[in-house]
Design a protein around this nucleic acid. Structure first.
Lengths: 225, 225
DNA sequence: TTTATAATAATAGTAATACTATTATAAATA
DNA sequence: TATTTATAATAGTATTACTATTATTATAAA
């Protein structure tokens, strides 16, 4: 049995639904590969078109510009991750164990699930680590937010905040702690590989240590509230 | 008495020292203003040249490209902040109090010190909040790091990590906690104003609450180690 | 004082980027 | 078969991110 993760995307993110045609799917697939390879700054629709074997204008029929494509991919990732979290913590009752599992899912590099979609989740995870913040660190963040482009991120944050509150109902900053966990799961990873002296894991480069750090950070906070 | 903060900058960051001429100083001054106004993506050397009343090529004589200018400004900011921290915690002996003071300095919006330099520190602080990560979230981060472009950031992180270790010698993640404090002082601020549901301060929008959150996060971690 | 030389500035480009408008082709329906 | 309609390909343009060349000014040696 093949499990198709069909993630319903905000229609304002695209001009034409990329899931609706082969070309659209190729834009997502090769888009992920090319952004991962060149970085978002050097990534252009022209290069992507050459990769796919179509024209620049062909891609512009699907996405208004490359920023929208990045926001689309980020939204897809957050929605996908929330699904993973819901699915993989479904049978866990103890909120503490659930939170630990979530930290694991956030901080562990993803293995691509070739079965499920044309998007390589492993590459996308790495893109989100190094490019993800650029989706919202812009002047248009207010506009984009009004159009609910960041809803998947907020939903995920909200899910985590709820579990934090289950663990410690008196803890005063569940949302901020949730966004801190999410951001730091990625930033500590980026730092570990690129600016190692900003972390305590620069030598060994083990993701498990980031997880240990986050667990320590979160659970001492929750214990003492 | 006028205190001139002369920050010695890495020479590889510029082609000509912008501190060495009026045009150079104008590039920094108006650069900060324009990046703040338009955001880094829409910022161009052409617009900056028009603002100053010089030509595009005139600016290219000082900075190779706009990325280098951003890295310069970020480096300047981190060096300036480290100076502020050293200066303002100089007479404080208790490391706990020093750390509290540092969290304050990181999370509180800066008031421009018009006396000291052509750079508006208040605007620059806001730029670092929304654009600062883009200085290192690039494909060239490795190259840039080899040229020590991020030394001021790392130095600041190191100073904070040392104080953390003074507070709790047994705490296992001083560097990662330091980079977490720095990043979260900024991200929680950005979220509070732009994606408020990612924080617990969306309603009131008070910086003091970010400080309270960070203090809680840090000192419960240190107490329990 | 004149002239060489070096530093700086202004002009005028170019290749690439980020799009858009128009035309052509294929598919679906009347 | 004719006619919409959808999609794709072609060919543009304005802007961006630079660079090369020429002009000007300042400094120093003859």
């Amino acid at each position: 049995m093949k499990l198709q993760v069909q993630i319903e995307m905000n229609e304002a993110l695209f001009l034409r639904n990329p899931e609706s045609s082969e070309l659209g799917k190729n834009i997502l697939k090769h888009g992920v590969q090319l952004i991962h390879k060149t970085g978002f700054e050097a990534f252009t629709f022209k290069k992507l078109a050459e990769d796919i074997g179509t024209t620049e204008a062909g891609i512009y029929r699907y996405f208004e510009n490359k920023h929208k494509l990045l926001v689309y991919l980020a939204a897809w990732y957050w929605a996908w991750l929330e699904f993973q979290i819901i699915f993989q913590t479904n049978n866990i009752k103890d909120p503490t164990k659930r939170l630990k599992k979530i930290i694991n899912l956030l901080a562990k590099s993803v293995e691509d699930d070739e079965q499920t979609s044309h998007i390589n989740e492993s590459l996308l995870h790495q893109i989100i680590i190094s490019e993800g913040s650029k989706a919202y660190l812009t002047k248009q963040v207010g506009e984009d937010n009004k159009q609910h482009f960041f809803k998947p991120y907020k939903d995920l944050c909200s899910v985590i905040a709820c579990i934090i509150s289950e663990c410690s109902p008196k803890y005063k900053y569940p949302k901020s702690l949730a966004s801190t966990i999410i951001e730091m799961a990625h930033f500590q990873n980026f730092f570990m590989y690129n600016l190692p002296s900003l972390t305590d894991f620069g030598k060994s480069k083990e993701e498990s240590k980031i997880i240990a750090f986050l667990n320590d950070l979160v659970f001492t906070s929750l214990k003492n509230s």
